[in-house]
Design a protein around this nucleic acid. Structure first.
Length: 415
RNA sequence: GUGGAUGUAGCUCAAUGGUAGAGUACUGGAUUGUGAUUCCAGGCGUUGUGGGUUCGAGUCCCAUCAUCCACCCCA
């Protein structure tokens, strides 16, 4: 038996890093007044088709979609934003305050070919700030993201931002036409993939890794020079705030988000240590999403962090917290009976205790205590039982002391 | 969906077509009840699976499956 391809177990030894990230997220997001929301893994297929966009790669070929027993088409969520917005609308969360700040943490599913940093079940940590069109909101969300990953100890990454313009006729639509016209004129010089993209998704050509395409893309029209006045001003204010925050960023006009709902500000965190899938977080503003899912005409901004990718970057930085772990070693039946009692009492007081179940030799018990990285060993034999005290050995200093049984708990508490 | 690479002990990897090995990990021991160093001993395998060539296949050929990497796309 094996797990399904692209779906991985997170094993002891790995899970600690995840717990650290999760605990820090709950603490850090709360500082910005975000509240956690948990939405179902399964939603109606229509939610994602309307939310993400029917022409996107995700919806076209990557969703785990099936009919349930009632005949309804349902889908395992491929991302978090659509579900959060659905819940936001369904439960009238806007009524409490014009601005709603939510974060989520959980598994997402996309049917893709697995590779480095890409799985079919993967995990995202994301947040949504809904209800404010202000560039201050964009900038704070970016600062939150930057501060969060730095708070985890990460510094070797790159923040890239771009503006995608808006849906007004003179903004992105006009720009798209220009890009298309430009690439149509030179289509024969592009790689096979890009020739196809000229009609399907011309913006993606800007992202191509083939040298010839890169060169041609360099002289393609740029969004920042073609977006409307309002979008330009919005972007400028976002940049100003980032400078205020003293956050280092790079404007990358080739950032093209893959989900249809994004407009205006778009951003990514990238690292060159992740292989080909070099973005470990991405986000941006979405102005039409809430309305298109049946809500009010409000706009939001948010991001999602790919947790597997983040864990890869944090590998090695996680140091387990130092704690007292006591190994109880017994020699003989009387002593073994006594350590059962001692362990029960110590555990009730909050100490981590481990012992041997097979009543092996003292040597093998100590060997195991060392292997399990226990900080202290309680050694108990007939002598100690008679004297009513335990030998307590500090594994680091090798110091050994005799502690009467009634004082054991206070002894460890005083450490 | 497309392309490339790789499948041998729990893990990391060896083995000109000729008896499947090492390191590590594991278990036990090195005089009475003291670990991680050292020394000794012990078990470790359907060589991914199924065919084929051969006196003989881990090795060569075909197929199949799995994994990894990359494309597409994204976190």
């Amino acid at each position: 038996m094996k797990s399904i391809p692209g779906m991985q177990d997170i094993l002891p030894g790995e899970v600690e890093a995840w717990q650290k990230i999760e605990a820090f997220a709950r603490d850090f997001f709360a500082r910005y007044h975000y509240q956690e929301i948990r939405t179902p893994l399964l939603e109606t297929t229509d939610l994602f088709v309307r939310g993400i966009g029917s022409e996107t790669g995700v919806v076209q070929k990557e969703m785990y979609t099936f009919d349930d027993k009632g005949g309804d088409s349902v889908t395992l969520r491929p991302e978090g934003t659509a579900s959060v917005i659905r819940a936001y609308i369904e439960h009238h969360l806007a009524h409490a305050d014009p601005v709603t700040k939510l974060f989520y943490l959980g598994a997402m599913f996309r049917y893709e070919r697995p590779q480095k940093g890409r799985l079919r079940q993967f995990h995202q940590l994301g947040c949504e700030l809904i209800g404010s069109p202000s560039p201050h909101a964009d900038a704070e969300v970016i600062q939150l993201l930057d501060g969060f990953v730095r708070g985890l100890g990460l510094s070797d990454f790159k923040l890239e931002i771009n503006s995608l313009g808006c849906l007004k006729a003179e903004c992105r639509p006009t720009y798209l036409k220009k890009v298309k016209t430009y690439f149509e004129g030179i289509a024969s010089k592009l790689c096979a993939d890009c020739q196809r993209k000229v009609t399907t998704n011309p913006l993606r050509i800007l992202d191509c890794k083939v040298e010839a395409c890169k060169k041609l893309a360099n002289s393609a029209p740029l969004i920042l020079e073609h977006q409307c006045r309002e979008c330009a001003q919005h972007f400028e204010k976002v940049e100003n705030n980032l400078k205020h925050y003293r956050i280092q960023y790079f404007v990358n006009q080739r950032i093209v988000r893959g989900l249809d709902y994004y407009d205006r500000t778009a951003f990514e965190l990238t690292s060159d240590k992740l292989g080909s899938q070099n973005a470990f977080a991405g986000g941006g503003r979405y102005s039409g999403l809430v309305k298109s899912l049946g809500g009010a005409d409000v706009t939001g901004v948010g991001f999602a962090i790919g947790l597997e990718r983040l864990v890869m970057l944090l590998e090695g930085t996680f140091v387990p917290a130092k704690s007292i772990t006591i190994y109880l070693a017994a020699l003989g039946e009387n002593a073994y009976a006594k350590i059962l009692e001692l362990a029960q009492n110590l555990r009730a007081e909050g100490f981590n205790c481990e012992m041997d179940y097979e009543e092996k030799s003292l040597k093998s018990q100590l060997r195991r205590a060392d292997k399990l990285k226990c900080s202290h060993v309680i050694i108990l034999g007939d002598d100690e039982i008679q004297k009513g005290e335990a030998q307590v050995k500090d594994f680091k200093t090798q110091a050994q002391s005799h502690i009467p049984f009634p004082q054991l708990i206070s002894h460890f508490k005083s450490l």
